[in-house]
Computed example of a mutant assay.
Amino acid sequence: MLPPILIVSITIVSIEVIVGFTGNGFIAIVNSINWIKSKNISSADMILIFLSTSRCILQVTIMIHIHSLYFTDVTKLSSVYKAFGAVWMFVNHASLWFSTWLYVLYCVKIINFTQRLLLQIKLRISGMIPWLLLGSLGISSMTSLPLLWITPGTYLCSSTGNCRENSTDHITNWDSSHLYLLLLYFAGCFFPLVLSVVTSALLINSLWKHTKKMQCYIDSFRDPLIDVHLTAIKSIISFLVLYLSSFAAQILLTLSTSQSKDVWKVAVSLVVAGAYPSVHSIILIIVNSKLKLAFRTICQYFKCRLENVTS
């Protein structure tokens, strides 16, 4: 029997996964339908399709991984742990890259650059996006596939709730296996996180300069570009906060090794880590006018159907 706090946290994570899977599925379906109808797709919508699809896979792997850790006989866990660990790391790194390219695209489109190199990037960014997405998949593969050759020397819980060391052969010690895992995780996260921070800083700097220029005009005049800046900044900052929280939670999960003395730390970390792809999908729907309109249309449709049934 699992500890009650762990049962509660897994239940919350399950709700997060359902919400996230629904939200990301909605984003992927709406953009795919628009792509099929118009036979054309914008760079932002292409990124959103890749991002939402990767997060749907990510949320499935989260649930399967939790099930394999806590509800499967410990003797069957070694290969499952490695396989789903590699898949999880791949889609986690890929979705991080996709989020980063989305905000880089927003930054390039919004900010008026004067430098020649940056101006060339601004003009060619749309054609670069497919290659950047494919490159992200390649980089994510390189930072996740080595996990298949790392044997986890971690404490795993059996279905009876007893935590003991994996008894399979050729178990490496905690230091080496977890060190490799952390290095791979850091390697896949470092550059996209740096790009996201730089993008956020550039947008904030651009907004500050634009606001100072607008102070020369009448106070009642509201420049739409300011609203665009603010929306992009809020979206990026919320993404950074969510991902960094998830990042810290994943590190704690790796260090906790599922021992009973760490059960509170494991429980909280599971909830925090699971919140990132779910909450961010909701934010993307809110800040995207096309997705928000589609969501309102669906809600209105179901509201009318419900009224017809009850009347």
Score class of each variant (00 low, 15 high):
residue 152 P to K: 02
residue 17 V to M: 12
residue 195 L to T: 00
residue 99 S to N: 15
residue 210 H to G: 03
residue 17 V to F: 07
residue 162 N to I: 14
residue 67 H to Q: 05
residue 195 L to I: 08
residue 13 V to T: 13
residue 143 T to S: 14
residue 286 I to G: 02
residue 27 I to V: 14
residue 211 T to A: 09
residue 288 N to G: 03
residue 98 F to P: 03
residue 233 I to M: 12
residue 90 F to V: 02
residue 305 R to T: 14
residue 80 V to E: 13
residue 117 L to N: 08
residue 213 K to D: 15
residue 169 D to F: 07
residue 196 S to V: 01
residue 30 V to T: 09
residue 76 K to Y: 05
residue 25 G to R: 10
residue 157 C to S: 10
residue 26 F to E: 04
residue 253 L to K: 00
residue 99 S to Q: 09
residue 39 K to L: 03
residue 14 S to A: 15
residue 252 L to P: 00
residue 69 L to C: 01
residue 143 T to C: 15
residue 310 T to R: 12
residue 297 T to I: 03
residue 27 I to C: 11
residue 22 T to L: 15
residue 202 L to R: 15
residue 307 E to D: 09
residue 288 N to L: 04
residue 240 L to V: 09
residue 173 N to R: 12
residue 196 S to T: 08
residue 36 I to M: 06
residue 289 S to Q: 10
residue 26 F to A: 05
residue 23 G to Q: 01
residue 310 T to G: 02
residue 125 I to E: 12
residue 21 F to C: 02
residue 116 R to T: 07
residue 13 V to M: 14
residue 236 I to P: 04
residue 271 V to T: 00
residue 267 A to N: 02
residue 305 R to E: 10
residue 9 S to P: 11
residue 184 L to R: 00
residue 155 Y to G: 06
residue 214 M to D: 08
residue 175 D to T: 10
residue 77 L to D: 04
residue 174 W to D: 10
residue 272 V to I: 15
residue 285 I to Q: 00
residue 51 L to M: 10
residue 157 C to R: 15
residue 255 L to G: 11
residue 187 A to F: 08
residue 78 S to I: 03
residue 112 N to L: 05
residue 275 A to E: 00
residue 153 G to A: 11
residue 186 F to W: 04
residue 211 T to H: 08
residue 241 V to W: 00
residue 12 I to Y: 06
residue 281 S to R: 04
residue 109 K to I: 06
residue 303 K to L: 09
residue 179 L to D: 06
residue 225 L to I: 12
residue 284 L to K: 13
residue 118 L to S: 11
residue 241 V to R: 01
residue 176 S to W: 07
residue 74 V to S: 11
residue 238 S to E: 00
residue 309 V to G: 01
residue 196 S to Q: 09
residue 263 V to D: 07
residue 9 S to G: 00
residue 142 M to V: 14
residue 32 S to P: 00
residue 258 S to L: 11
residue 248 A to L: 14
residue 219 D to V: 05
residue 51 L to T: 03
residue 139 I to R: 01
residue 24 N to D: 10
residue 44 A to E: 07
residue 114 T to F: 04
residue 221 F to C: 01
residue 178 H to E: 05
residue 7 I to W: 07
residue 281 S to N: 03
residue 210 H to T: 05
residue 74 V to L: 14
residue 264 W to F: 10
residue 208 W to E: 13
residue 293 L to I: 07
residue 197 V to K: 13
residue 268 V to M: 12
residue 141 S to W: 07
residue 110 I to N: 08
residue 39 K to D: 11
residue 102 L to S: 09
residue 91 V to H: 06
residue 56 C to Q: 14
residue 287 V to L: 04
residue 52 S to C: 09
residue 3 P to W: 02
residue 142 M to R: 04
residue 147 L to S: 08
residue 85 G to D: 01
residue 302 F to W: 14
residue 53 T to Y: 08
residue 147 L to V: 14
residue 57 I to S: 06
residue 207 L to V: 00
residue 153 G to C: 05
residue 292 K to D: 00
residue 171 I to C: 13
residue 185 Y to D: 04
residue 139 I to P: 14
residue 188 G to I: 01
residue 66 I to K: 01
residue 288 N to W: 00
residue 289 S to A: 12
residue 153 G to K: 01
residue 304 C to K: 13
residue 303 K to A: 09
residue 123 L to T: 07
residue 115 Q to L: 09
residue 220 S to L: 03
residue 194 V to H: 01
residue 198 V to K: 10
residue 308 N to Q: 13
residue 310 T to F: 04
residue 272 V to E: 04
residue 125 I to P: 09
residue 298 I to Y: 10
residue 174 W to C: 03
residue 176 S to K: 08
residue 40 N to K: 15
residue 70 Y to L: 15
